[in-house]
Design a protein around this nucleic acid. Structure first.
Lengths: 230, 230
DNA sequence: TAGTGGTCTAGACCACTTT
DNA sequence: AAGTGGTCTAGACCACTAG
């Protein structure tokens, strides 16, 4: 692991253990503690600023931000639901898993040729046994060569990162409120016509390839979301 | 203005004018063009990465991301609606503007004493003459000493930045889907019980002071939102 | 192998806050 | 005046991509 990553992780641990009150140590102190250059310290701190856990005040210090509200799903970052709800039990029911060929619309979205094989997956996701969200997901099979039910029932993202050793780059998320159709509302155990939040997510690898497009419709009674901005 | 800010602005202009295709020039080329150090170039590029308009591929270059969908309101950043809809006409009707004293709940949210004077403002906002969102907003009067109707009818954010010369730092946004009450739905020209997206926004200055808390309820037919993640 | 971005070091001076 | 983060320079070596 890189020096600045290790330092960032270590600082994060110490923040969680409340070893610092209010502020981080000064840059000079951290330089001395970790025996690295100032640039490396600033790089480490910067990654904490990015994820919204500290903020800088010039001339005064790096201040620790109050912890976020529980159970709010963080929309910054390209992680799945699982990591956002550590205290909740997430389970998944796979409704559909098949390989289709990209039509014109999909081929445009994926920047691929028409006919490219694409995994199409529908999953119903539960949080503490309550139906939480329904996912309609596409994966480019040229990039993710295999997804089986045994994987889709767990975490597809974990599989892609840890088993396929691919690295996520960035994502674009588009949000809107919709009225659920009959099927979705019944799956989410809601009334027909009840609202839902639909998030359309375009996820890219760190080489700029788009590998995943998903439409997720959240149960409006359970979905609570968080965005940290700078 | 700082060197890296000027370079970032210049690059952004050139991207918009399509002077670059696919990639930015290499760091070495930019060092030569702008006659600054590599660190300054990287700092400039970094600010473009942050706002999601380029992405890096190590060993290959800095690639330009495709433009975002039109009319999507960007939730990254602490800007108002106005800047997100340059081609749309935004107008505002002030429904309420008064000074109240912080009760216990408000004093906790604002980290201020009970009784601190707080501006309370209700505004109905229109986009191209369609009722677009209703805002319930609080401003700490100790930080924003004056807000009049003439300001609230325009852009309060512009006033704070340009007239008061305050600098925004960061914000926390919490999102959920609600069913609108009778008053809100009628103001937004929707049916009673129709859904809305509620965004609770906590906005901080660059010195870490929280000066604004708002609850904005968007017309579900018009609200379309965007989050760029890394 | 050459090109390009990523990490790291060492040091100078500036801007802002605190005492 | 002292402390602390922000900007900027100069240079070295590493990691990854592409021809």
């Amino acid at each position: 692991m890189k020096k600045y990553e290790e330092i960032a992780l270590d600082l994060q641990k110490k923040i969680n253990k409340k070893e610092f009150t209010m502020k981080l140590p000064t840059e000079d102190q951290l330089i001395h503690t970790y025996q690295v250059s100032r640039n490396t310290i600033r790089n480490a701190i910067n990654s904490l600023v990015k994820i919204g856990i500290v903020y800088p005040i010039q001339g005064s210090g790096m201040f620790i931000r109050p912890p976020k509200k529980e159970n709010a799903i963080c929309l910054n970052g390209t992680r799945g639901i699982t990591v956002d709800s550590p205290s909740k039990e997430i389970s998944t029911q796979v409704l559909e898993l098949k390989i289709i060929n990209a039509d014109e619309k999909l081929s445009q979205s994926f920047h691929c040729d028409i006919g490219t094989p694409i995994y199409y997956i529908e999953r119903l996701r539960f949080r503490d046994n309550q139906p939480f969200a329904i996912e309609y997901t596409y994966y480019n099979k040229d990039i993710i060569p295999y997804i089986g039910r045994e994987i889709a029932e767990k975490s597809i993202y974990r599989y892609i990162k840890e088993d396929l050793k691919l690295t996520f780059g960035f994502s674009d998320k588009y949000l809107k409120v919709i009225k659920l159709n009959e099927r979705d509302s019944s799956l989410l155990q809601l009334e027909n016509g009840d609202p839902g939040l639909e998030i359309e997510d375009h996820v890219y690898l760190n080489n700029g390839q788009i590998f995943n497009i998903s439409h997720i419709r959240y149960n409006y009674k359970l979905g609570y979301f968080y965005v940290s901005s700078i």
